[in-house]
């Protein structure tokens, strides 16, 4: 995976992930997500180009979502690839995360 690409528009950050999100890079993803939330930004995680995500990547998303809830910030996953969705389904997290289908974050 390349470094997550973050685009900030006003107080809304879009973090784009791509490739395999696994043990080798999940902590980079975690840091990027937590940093945006701690800066007070709402976060959309774009996952269209995620080819695989392991439990460490999923755990990073869970931790970020929980922090967003604590801080009262919006957090959503957008354009989740089928490969990533199948992993979220395995842990029933597809029923936990706000997931939007469109790139504009609208479901």
């Amino acid at each position: 995976m390349t470094t997550p690409q973050t685009t900030l528009v006003e107080d809304h950050a879009t973090v784009a992930l791509e490739g395999d999100i696994d043990l080798s890079c999940s902590q980079t993803v975690r840091s990027a997500l937590l940093a945006q939330l701690r800066a007070g930004h709402a976060v959309s995680v774009r996952m269209a180009a995620v080819s695989y995500i392991d439990s460490s990547g999923v755990a990073s998303l869970v931790e970020a979502y929980q922090l967003a809830r604590k801080l009262g910030l919006d957090f959503q996953l957008t354009e989740v690839s089928e490969a990533a969705l199948s992993v979220l389904r395995l842990a029933r997290l597809d029923r936990v995360f706000p997931i939007a289908t469109g790139s504009d974050g609208k479901g």
Partner: peptide, 19 residues
């Protein structure tokens, strides 16, 4: 085997217990 953040490790373990 890893140097993940403790919070990540706990969530991963709890995820597998859920599964």
């Amino acid at each position: 085997h890893t140097r993940l953040a403790p919070a990540t490790m706990h969530i991963m373990a709890r995820l597998k217990l859920e599964v």
